[in-house]
Design a protein around this nucleic acid. Structure first.
Lengths: 235, 235
DNA sequence: GGTAAAGTACAACGTGCATGGCAACTATAA
DNA sequence: TTATAGTTGCCATGCACGTTGTACTTTACC
């Protein structure tokens, strides 16, 4: 079973038993992500993807069964990557809560989160298209996306908030709800107004939104008045 | 220039100088709203709209220049109607703040708001499609929608919050931001999870979201006199 | 009832686009 | 170098759909 160094993978949906080039496959997926992000799923033409990838349309059909399977592959590979980045971000900022202030930690997390959104603009353009088409996309595809990206990130946030509540730094009997409130106040307005990064927002405005959001969040979930907050290790 | 009682309106884009039936036009717009809401803009076929409206496709083209103009008409007429309903709701619930509690007023507003969303499910299905396709729709269309629906409603909310802040019932130096925070906390999660009403959410869950959201909001924007607990110097 | 305009049925036209077939080209492994 | 198989360009096919033309039917007012 000798294989070329470049053709070690199993194909995703082409004719069975063929050995296709991994490099071509990667080029296709990357090009497809760009075009799908720009134009959306049913709208992006195979030809445009082929051009973007520097590949013939015929080759695309050698690697993938059809356009939909290509789309699924793009979603899975892209969102797993960005999901990891966000999860790492959350853990990094909330691993140890500085006694100096939970507020500054949350604000810093907010800014870094937005930074990821601009760095991975192409991915979030794709996400925008997914949510846009959600109702017309197979449910399995939506699940695939949720599971590989948003869900783990959210779980990490809930986990950290649970620890913060246990440490008395937060009044969050329901950490999941607190996570939702934090996310809404700190990010939802930004994702909304930038359309997930599509339209720019002045940095000062972003900063104001995050600061105000974190402020409202912390006041809304402040530890019970009688008990001064215990800021210590949250682990 | 005798006109039939049924044909008094000016046409939107058909051949100039013809007198078209208002009843047919209404049927077309209503059917188009249903189908556009269900399938989205470019996706909905003229044939499907014609069937839904009980009209021939040719008649549609006698009343409207093309599919896009029909879509614009649907958006304008539908969102103006729902926008008025929401504005009325806001004014009704926040016109006089019961000393008994701003909290209950906001919660009641929240419930009525959600009720409007379910009553006008067809409209919000349309809104879902608009936001989904926003990037590929002419900007003028998006503006048309924003101006006729969401903007007036939001303005009403900001106005009420400004009065509440002036009356000392709320700590909202920036009423616009407070309105955003209230909207996010009380509604955004619901619109998110129900996909603007597309997928159902148990009433108990809705109630919990609104209650928790209003709670967080009020604690975050509580009037200063009693100085709510603050973590460190949150300013 | 007559008449003119609106509405309808039907079909044609053009287009865009996802696929599939095929033969020629090319790069790699032996 | 040679055989093997991925890659490519190009064309064909089929389909979906917006839009229009046209001839016939219905409707509303005189």
């Amino acid at each position: 079973m000798t294989r070329r160094p470049d053709t070690l993978h199993a194909q995703d949906g082409g004719a069975p038993g063929r050995r296709l080039s991994a490099a071509k496959r990667e080029a296709i997926v990357r090009g497809a992500r760009t075009v799908f992000g720009r134009e959306g799923f049913p709208r992006a033409g195979i030809d445009a993807i082929a051009v973007e990838a520097g590949v013939s349309t015929r080759t695309i059909y050698n690697h993938f069964r059809d356009k939909e399977q290509l789309f699924a592959t793009v979603i899975e590979e892209s969102s797993a990557h960005v999901g990891d980045a966000l999860t790492a971000l959350i853990d990094r900022h909330l691993e140890e809560v500085p006694a100096s202030g939970l507020e500054s930690a949350l604000i810093a997390l907010g800014h870094d989160w937005v930074a990821v959104m601009t760095e991975c603009a192409e991915h979030f353009a794709l996400v925008r298209q997914i949510t846009a088409e959600a109702a017309h996309l197979p449910a399995a595809l939506i699940d695939l996306w949720q599971e590989s990206g948003p869900r783990p990130a959210r779980a990490a946030l809930v986990h950290r908030f649970r620890l913060l509540a246990a440490a008395g730094a937060l009044d969050a009997p329901d950490p999941a709800r607190a996570a939702t409130h934090f996310h809404l106040l700190a990010f939802a307005e930004i994702t909304d107004r930038t359309r997930l990064g599509a339209t720019p927002l002045p940095p000062a405005e972003i900063s104001a939104i995050i600061t105000a959001g974190v402020h409202t969040f912390l006041h809304g979930h402040a530890p019970t008045p009688t008990r001064p907050p215990v800021l210590g290790t949250t682990r």
